[in-house]
Nucleic acid binder design. Sequence first.
DNA 1: AGTAACCTTGACGTTGGCGTAAGGTCGAAC
DNA 2: GTTCGACCTTACGCCAACGTCAAGGTTACT
Lengths: 155, 155
Amino acid sequence: MAEKQGALQIGEVAQRTGVTQRTLRFYEEKGLLRPPSRMDGGFRLYSEEDVKRVEHIRRLQDLLGISLAEIKEMVDADEVLRDLRSQYRPESAITEKRNQLEKATAVTEAQFAIVKQKTEQMREMETQLEERLRLFTRWKQELDELEKKAAPTRG
Amino acid sequence: MAEKQGALQIGEVAQRTGVTQRTLRFYEEKGLLRPPSRMDGGFRLYSEEDVKRVEHIRRLQDLLGISLAEIKEMVDADEVLRDLRSQYRPESAITEKRNQLEKATAVTEAQFAIVKQKTEQMREMETQLEERLRLFTRWKQELDELEKKAAPTRG
DNA sequence: AGTAACCTTGACGTTGGCGTAAGGTCGAAC
DNA sequence: GTTCGACCTTACGCCAACGTCAAGGTTACT
């Protein structure tokens, strides 16, 4: 029997996600990744879900440019989400579920607000740059005409 | 005679931009801000343009989440832009101007590409979060109905 | 001329996000 | 049963982006 079906060692995860092994252990240390299962010898065994998680973390880092502490909060919210999804059957403790759901909603709404605002500002910056590019091409044309006047039909 | 009309000391700039004086000196040190003029005693005197610049730097930091080194490149490009704008008269050295213009265009296009890509990804993230929120509200409704069935018309 | 508020440079401290050995263990193959 | 690459923990190192004194000079006002 294999340790686990289709489990990945840290090296493979590192390759596939583009981060270093150090980074993976670091994320685990900081609570961004749940401690993965281990082989008998102690080697870490990651799942495909873990890979997705790492990619998600990196996207947040790259796009939002926020700290790992903040990312941890977001990712913890995702964890709540998974919990809700998995044990959606047991009808016990409905009020607790509702609480979790409320909390997850709140966190997600906060994220959404941030992302929305940033998206808007990004759009503004985009149009600004676009305008600048147009300005440049106009200037180039002006330069062209200046040169024509200065040296008309030479050669 | 005032040292300069409407010039600002470092404290005022700090207040207006929301950064510390240390940060302003730091940016100057790193070449992100041109060394401002000084009073006789050595006090820094900033212009309104400098204020805009600081705000721009912070926007880039916040929105794009990139390093100050990268921001410096962008801001340097802006400087070229200003140069072009100001000495747009002298018709000497047209080819040099064209060169600068080409360079500025290239840099701006690179920035634009980055910003465009990030904007797109942000939009994706935005819609993902939106969907998640919808999912949550659906779940809440389901919970409501579950409760109705479990305890019908009580009280 | 005194003084409070503001500024100067210099230098060391801090925090986040990892990098990089050092020394030992594990796993598979030969 | 040894070899060898992948992995383990521990721990110190490093850079960016400032924070935080310290010791003094400047300005403006009275």
